[in-house]
């Protein structure tokens, strides 16, 4: 049981928790957070793959690590857009906006 395998299993567990959160989450913010958890898990998986591919003088394979940096920034912009949508929705609902055409109960 090397450190990479341990972190690999932890990453798998984080992904499972993220997926559970996305299924069970109520309201958009809970789901956005669950999405970030799942994303974090996948990125740790990237890290584990990088660490396993260490060699040629680097502590870890730089390509997956670079991908994670790009991934984190993309995940952030997704969360920012989602959060802005949530706020705008709350603002409109607070102003007594007319209920949307098909009143879908968001259960």
């Amino acid at each position: 049981m090397s450190a990479e395998t341990l972190f690999g299993l932890a990453a798998a567990a984080l992904c499972a928790i993220g997926i559970y959160g996305l299924m069970v989450g109520r309201g958009a913010l809970a789901r956005l957070i669950a999405f970030n958890l799942l994303g974090g898990g996948v990125f740790v998986l990237f890290g584990v793959v990088a660490r396993r591919g260490a060699g040629a003088g680097f502590g870890g394979d730089p390509v997956p690590q670079a991908l994670v940096i790009t991934g984190i920034v993309v995940a952030f912009s997704a969360t920012a857009l989602g959060a802005a949508l949530v706020e705008r929705l709350a603002q409109l609902r607070a102003k007594g906006g007319a209920p949307s055409e098909e009143p879908e109960a968001d259960t």
Partner: peptide, 30 residues
Amino acid sequence: RLAAVDVALTEVAVGSGVTGLVLLRAVARD
């Protein structure tokens, strides 16, 4: 611990820092 300090910096600064800030603002306003 996974010997990826660049990513650690990004994760803390962007992944939980700024993302957390945005989510906090959304929680406060929602």
